[in-house]
Design a protein around this nucleic acid. Structure first.
Length: 877
RNA sequence: GGAGAUAUAGCUCAGCUGGGAGAGCAUCUGCUGGACGUGUAGAGGGUCACAGGUUCGAGUCCUGCUAUCUCCACCA
């Protein structure tokens, strides 16, 4: 056995261990009919991405679950991969080209894609290596990419299927347009933010000269595209206007006044300008009334209409138009007004609603099984409250705009006949037009929304559309782990795609986590510069410490704050585990410990075995309910408090005495308990547990060892009781000594007095460690107070009194004071217990077990009180 | 305008189906005996936001209210 370092140094260990795991293919899973599968697919990070704390949390949670299930004997598969991230990547590559002085358009589609793939090959894998640093046990042999051959095949298949069922259609509709990225985006990609703006009141002259109609708008520049003014049909004020024509200022057009219930009488002036081509509501109104749709904007949001405003930027035009209206006396007033502005979530640009030909997925029918899945419990969210968010979105879902005016992505498999305009949707380019027979067909220029391919991720990565063995065995996956911020983008789309294409929900559970924030609670962001790099934390404190920090004290769905003190405390725990193990290995001295018979075990051994046994039961329960924070807290407390601070201290006297007949039992127990604790800790802290385990065990790796299960033969209730009594006495003694300022070096005889022979037996049995833990020179266990000096200090536990003659140190007044404090405490406890037991309603309604519990407490407190009173009397009180 | 979350020790947060308020860090006081000072033994510190209600019993369930945060929403 090698000598272990005094402090744990993760950097020396982690890489070597990860290489070992990789080399032995522990992460790899193949179909194995004899085992039950447990599958997770990774939320594929963007190829443009760099590992941040959000990833670190997400991957840690998945790795914990997958390692846990693997140890439980499941055939655990964690499928990794990356997402092509159409817009982000396209922007990055475009910028790179620009720096080289190359214009994307001049380079052309083919040249651009070549560069994009080169870029992907060069930088795209970076994040994968970063995931490995965390200890992620992904099956890297199965690494996928949303634009690889198989995923692309799945995309084509789904597109064609949905098209043929009529769920995908092409239409001219109002969509969200990003004037900077120059592409359409879906509703989910629009972020709404409240912005301070103005409300401009403008008079539109009535053509018959009878006056004006006053409208109010937040976007005066769009008036160039107005094709009507609407009033509510029930608004008495404006009945006479309906049907009249208005002169649209700054143009030579005339527009009608129409009546539509969409208009709110109470808001603004009650008259609304209708701009069908630049506002989603107006678009609807326009379609109802067959109004012309006049587009006044170019793709870069400059104005496009005959006249002086042509070519102006939208905001420049706004200023000019307001100025001109004012000069013409048509501007009535300007009010301050804050309103919602839609921005593109990738670049922050204000989105422009525009009418464009785009491809859409019709959502109404597709959404139904996804709604049903949550309602009938086939799919559950952890925590449950995310059901509501999910359902609310699905129940109000609108058609999904899936075409993007980008090059990096899956090109839409639609071909147009140059002659007759026929649309052919097919996996491969048709050579002739099925309608007119000509041979000139051109493929649609657009690509698909990046989420179209990620929606298929749980099954496309397992071989779909081929009915592979993998698919049949590993699918549906078990749990999806992700942040609440992409429920709309991703989770919902995976669920309805799963039902539509495979007839099943793609996973059974969705474990939602929150955001990792900085120590002040702010979002970590590039612009604030407050991000903490997980890789830096790993290199300084180790991946285990980072992982522990990310799961400790965090409940599912809640945001968490990240700060260095917590990382340090996790690192300290790793060191604690390291040193406890080092201590045990030093004592084992490489000797083989034979299986020890239960009859050879002492009460302390049985106590700790019983504790680790119930720990296994509880932790398993917590992990099955995804309560990972609670589970790891219990493991932490067990290792540090029960095992290190109590059990190891208890067995030291036995270890030091080579003649001790129970020494072997102590060594065996230490090893058993440590191994079990390490196993439970392994999913959380994989590296340190592996390193220690391999130094301790003959098995080749902890990650393929078996998860501890509850075993009846390790259930020792009597010993748990006995040891808790001794611990109680030790605590009492320590308290007294601290109170009296007795240094640890000053030993005293400790008398344990109890009339109960069983209690005396417990202390007799525990004599060796009880003496050590209570700084006793000698322990005397007896039935009465014979031989105990009256001046000895005392502490009471149920069923026993403990005395220590500390002669010269004794301060009688202080002793009395302490006893009186204890008396007051006991009085309060007795009052509470008696209050309950004397309450008829409690006795008649509370469960029997609870009543029994309280009765036992009453007995204990009464005993202790008697002892305290007796002692006080003895002291002349 | 809807919906949700959060409010517990100085700080950051746990607390599952109701049955004597917890952890880590911080603060204070001891302890250097043979795993660990990244340690150890102790201490102080909480009307569990507020007000009602249900219950023998409420941090936990219900109602209301306040504050903060988040999501959704077409009031121009």
């Amino acid at each position: 056995m090698k000598e272990l370092a005094k402090t744990y140094d993760p950097t020396a260990i982690e890489e070597r261990i990860y290489d070992k795991w990789m080399g032995r293919k522990y992460f790899h899973a193949e179909v194995e009919r004899s085992k039950k599968p447990f599958t997770i697919v990774i939320p594929p990070p963007n190829v443009t991405g760099k590992l941040h704390m959000g990833h670190a949390l997400d991957e840690t949670l998945q790795d914990i679950l997958i390692r846990y299930k693997r140890m439980q004997g499941y055939n655990a598969l964690w499928v990794p991969g990356t997402d092509h991230a159409s817009i982000s990547t396209e922007v990055k590559v475009t910028n790179q080209l620009r720096e080289e002085g190359i214009d994307k358009q001049e380079l052309g589609r083919e040249g651009f894609l070549k560069r994009a793939w080169e870029w992907k090959e060069e930088y795209g894998g970076a994040i994968i290596n970063q995931l490995k640093k965390l200890g992620s046990s992904c099956d890297w042999d199965r690494e996928r990419f949303t634009m690889d051959e198989g995923c692309s095949e799945a995309v084509l298949e789904v597109f064609i299927r949905l098209y043929e069922k009529g769920y995908i259609y092409k239409g001219s509709r109002i969509i969200n347009w990003c004037p900077v990225c120059k592409t359409s985006i879906s509703d989910a990609e629009v972020e709404h933010e409240e912005q301070a703006g103005h409300f401009w009141h403008i008079n539109y002259p009535i053509t018959d000269g009878s006056g004006y109609v006053e409208i109010a708008t937040t976007r005066p520049e769009t008036m160039l595209g107005d094709t009507a003014v609407a009033v509510n049909p029930e608004d008495e004020r404006y009945q006479h206007l309906i049907g009249k024509m208005l002169k649209l200022p700054l143009t030579d057009r005339e527009i009608p006044v129409i009546a539509d219930p969409y208009v709110d009488k109470e808001f603004g002036t009650g008259c609304v300008k209708i701009t069908p081509a630049h506002d989603p509501n107006d678009f609807e109104v326009g379609r109802r009334h067959n109004l012309p749709e006049i587009n006044i904007m170019n793709d870069d949001a400059t104005i496009c209409c005959p006249g002086k405003y042509h070519g102006m930027d939208r905001y420049e035009a706004r200023k000019a138009i307001v100025k001109d209206l004012e000069e013409q006396g048509l501007l009535v007033k300007v009010e301050d007004h804050s309103h919602n502005v839609g921005t593109h979530d990738r670049c922050g640009t204000t989105v422009e609603p525009l009418i464009k030909q785009q491809w859409f997925v019709k959502m109404e029918e597709l959404a139904k099984p996804a709604v049903e899945a949550v309602k009938n419990g086939e799919l559950t969210f952890v925590p449950e409250r995310f059901d509501k968010i999910y359902l609310h979105w699905l129940e109000n879902i609108r058609d999904w705009c899936i075409s993007r005016q980008l090059w990096w992505g899956h090109r839409i498999p639609a071909y147009y006949c140059d002659e007759c305009g026929e649309i052919v949707v097919a996996k491969e380019a048709p050579s002739v037009c099925p309608k007119c027979g000509c041979t000139h067909l051109t493929q649609d220029e657009d690509t698909l929304d990046t989420w179209f391919s990620s929606a298929l991720w749980p099954f496309s990565t397992l071989g779909w559309p081929k009915q592979t063995e993998d698919l049949e065995y590993f699918y549906p996956t078990d749990v999806l782990v992700t942040g609440y911020d992409i429920i709309f983008f991703w989770v919902i789309r995976m669920v309805f795609s799963g039902y539509e294409q495979t007839g099943k929900s793609p996973f059974h559970h969705v474990l939602i986590h929150g955001l990792v924030r900085d120590s002040q609670g702010r979002k970590m962001s590039k612009s604030l510069g407050n991000g903490i790099d997980p890789l830096e934390i790993i290199s300084e404190y180790g991946a285990d410490a980072l992982r522990l920090t990310l799961v400790t004290g965090n409940a599912p769905g809640n945001d968490m704050r990240f700060y260095m003190e917590r990382v340090k405390s996790s690192r300290n725990f790793a060191n604690k585990v390291w040193n406890a193990s080092r201590f045990i290995m030093m004592n084992l001295e490489d000797q083989k410990i034979a299986e020890v018979d239960a009859s050879a075990l002492t009460a302390a051994d049985k106590w700790i075995l019983s504790k680790v046994n119930s720990l296994a039961e509880e932790v398993t329960g917590n992990m099955d309910s995804f309560e990972l924070g609670i589970a790891v807290q219990k493991i932490y407390d067990f290792i540090w408090d029960e095992f290190c601070d109590w059990y190891i201290e208890m067995v030291k006297p036995r270890l030091w005495n080579k003649e001790d007949t129970t020494r072997e039992a102590a060594l065996w127990t230490l090893k058993q308990v440590l191994i079990n604790a390490l196993k439970m800790l392994h999913p959380y802290m994989p590296f340190i547990t592996e390193e220690i385990f391999c130094n301790l065990s003959d098995e080749e790796s902890i990650m393929i060892s078996s998860w501890p299960e509850y075993k009846e033969e390790w259930n020792f209730a009597a010993e748990e009781h006995a040891i808790s009594m001794i611990k109680e006495a030790v605590r009492g003694i320590r308290n007294v000594r601290t109170d009296m300022n007795v240094p640890n070096s000053k030993k005293a005889t400790v008398y344990v007095v109890s009339e109960n022979p069983q209690v005396r037996e417990i202390f007799e049995q525990g004599r060796s460690f009880f003496a050590a833990l209570s700084f006793a020179s000698e322990v005397k266990v007896q039935a009465d107070k014979a031989g105990i000096e009256e001046s000895a200090v005392s502490t009471m536990i149920p069923e026993a009194a403990v005395y220590m003659p500390l002669d010269e140190l004794l301060d009688l007044a202080k002793e009395k004071e302490r006893l009186k404090k204890e008396e007051v405490r006991l009085q309060k406890e007795l009052a509470r217990v008696n209050g309950m037991l004397n309450n008829e309603k409690f006795v008649s309604k509370a469960p029997a077990a609870k009543i029994q519990e309280e009765k036992e407490k009453l007995e204990k407190y009464t005993q202790m009180m008697d002892q305290v009173k007796e002692r006080l009397a003895q002291l002349g009180e």
